[in-house]
Design a protein around this nucleic acid. Structure first.
Lengths: 120, 120
DNA sequence: CTGTATCCAAACCGATACTG
DNA sequence: CAGTATCGGTTTGGATACAG
């Protein structure tokens, strides 16, 4: 029983399927949005809350921690006065952008399609 | 118990964020994989179970229903003998492929990166 | 401002057994 | 083969209140 405790329990099977590696980063309903809004540059906690109005503070906090732990984001505490905290994409985070953008692009298409179908 | 199962409660806010439209389709840990394996052509229930070994019949069934309901897949019952059932991507399903492929591509990159980092 | 704590509900999952 | 039924467990999330 010398099993090491794993800090992150990946619900998706690791490596079992070709998409798991990336999907592990996009866990939860909100992670992609967080990354999306950080792609425009560093942002603060409260800004992200405004960007993503329906996310609760608890979940935003959880996602942020998760993404930092996975190396997708960094938390930058600026020691000015008043001190501020910003989150920023890492290189790894930037590597996710093509997937995020593809998702957003498809989403935009679906939205148009919906409008179209509703008129028809 | 005349309680009917709610068909779909979308927990992600519809239209609130630019990624929600597409993410709603990729809900759950397995939906992207199901779509991925259907991109090679129609497949049967049991084939998908083999493609995605760690998915349970219950969940595969649920995802399949969900995706059919969302218009991503169609269930095709062939009336031959023996009769067979196949699932196939719809046009809407095909529209998701760029996102799925981007996710897979990023995943492959991450995998390489991991191997690289472990050697270093 | 940047979170954490608590509570609770909903979504998701695997294992197992079972049906037509 | 193509699922469904049941059970119990995990994960994710919202609301609210609160802390440094």
């Amino acid at each position: 029983m010398a099993l090491r405790l794993r800090k992150s329990k990946v619900s998706a099977p690791p490596g079992a399927c070709p998409l798991s590696e990336c999907m592990a980063m996009l866990r939860g309903a909100w992670a992609p949005n967080v990354i999306w809004y950080l792609s425009g540059g560093p942002r603060r906690f409260s800004e992200l809350r405004r960007d993503i109005p329906r996310i609760s503070a608890r979940v935003l906090s959880a996602r942020l921690h998760d993404l930092v732990e996975r190396g997708v984001l960094v938390r930058i505490e600026t020691d000015t006065s008043p001190p501020s905290v910003e989150y920023q994409l890492t290189d790894l985070g930037l590597e996710l952008m093509p997937a995020i953008e593809a998702i957003a692009h498809v989403g935009a298409k679906l939205k148009e399609r919906n409008r179209f179908r509703q008129r028809a």
